[in-house]
């Protein structure tokens, strides 16, 4: 178990380190560069000035050297300033991460709470009309483009009916809990609808597999109540792989909320990355991208470790 754990942690660390270099290189390939931006702000700069400025900021040196210089600063917590927000890039991230965590936590919990009973009920009645209906709804859920779903929800609930606000966060300075909750309804609904289908399909498949096992027949044979067999004997085994999916989804949602956050103008990590990339905010884009990468990799690691911890069979690899 320990060797397995050490191995996976090392692997994740290598991946994140590698990605920091890749991201650094990619950000450097985005259109425009800081000196061009200066140049457009002050047309009196001569080519000599430009060369001098590039030398001052080290932009004339090779990529690896620049990366190492950046890394040297990054390890002591200096990530540079954000161009868009005129703050240290690291300071911009904190509240955004909290916002995303809130949106994500609620959506994930809602998806799991809806998916569990629905999937168990569908698996118990596999092949019936109910099962088919659940399956069809799941298909719709996985296939709908998130941004279009958000658009339709805004159109129906915010524009036509006027029941709910179309923005993810209230404008008022101190809106109160109820007002905040009202603004969260549509983004949460979007994310939940988009993810619940996958959850149901996953649990349902795992349940059907579990229900076909010998120990289920044994449980029935010794006269246990069918409900007990379903919810205790089958579900506990079916839930094992679902833990992995939940952890993986956590990682996916950190960035997967990007579209939803952008649609509802919700200030979270996804929208931040998008805005930073579009607004040539190199320091911020790089840091946010790395943070999201590290978080996603960590969630994946967690999924692996949790699975191994819960299922002794995996540990023996």
């Amino acid at each position: 178990m320990n060797r397995f754990l050490v191995h996976r942690v090392l692997q994740a660390a290598v991946l994140v380190a590698l990605m920091s270099f890749v991201c650094y290189g990619l950000i450097g390939l985005m259109p425009g560069d800081p000196i061009d931006l200066l140049l457009s702000a002050d047309p009196r700069l001569t080519p000599e000035d430009v060369a001098r400025l590039k030398a001052i900021h080290g932009l004339d040196r090779p990529l690896l050297e620049r990366y190492l210089a950046w890394l040297g600063k990054a390890v002591v917590g200096e990530f540079g300033y954000s161009r868009l927000y005129a703050q240290p890039a690291a300071a911009v991230l904190g509240p955004r991460l909290a916002n995303t965590a809130l949106l994500m936590g609620i959506s994930l919990a809602a998806a799991a709470l809806i998916a569990l009973p629905l999937a168990v009920a569908a698996a118990a009645r596999a092949g019936t009309g109910f099962d088919r209906a659940v399956n069809a709804l799941c298909f719709a859920g996985i296939s709908v483009p998130t941004f279009w779903l958000a658009l339709i929800l805004i159109m129906v609930f915010a524009v036509q009916l006027g029941w709910l606000p179309a923005a993810g966060l209230p404008m008022a300075r101190d809106p109160g809990l109820l007002e905040r909750a009202r603004h969260l309804v549509l983004p949460v609904l979007t994310l939940t609808v988009a993810s619940v289908g996958g959850h149901v399909r996953y649990i349902r498949a795992a349940m059907i597999e579990a229900l076909g096992q010998d120990y289920i027949r044994t449980a029935h044979a010794k006269g246990l109540h069918p409900r007990r067999v379903l919810w205790r004997h089958a579900l506990r085994n079916a839930l094992l792989p679902y833990v992995t999916i939940l952890a993986l989804d956590c990682g996916a949602l950190v960035s997967g909320a990007l579209v939803t956050e952008t649609m509802f103008g919700y200030p979270g990590m996804g929208k931040l990355i998008f805005d930073a990339v579009m607004g040539n905010d190199f320091n911020l884009a790089l840091l946010a991208l790395l943070l999201v990468t590290a978080l996603t990799v960590a969630c994946n690691l967690l999924a692996d470790v949790a699975y191994a911890a819960l299922d002794p069979r995996i540990r023996q690899r």
Binding site: P31, G270, A285
Partner: peptide
């Protein structure tokens, strides 16, 4: 490694590069 990465943000950066 590729499976463990946040695809959408990376694709956005990749789509934006010059």
């Amino acid at each position: 490694g590729v499976i463990a990465l946040p695809m959408l943000p990376l694709l956005i950066v990749l789509a934006a590069i010059d």
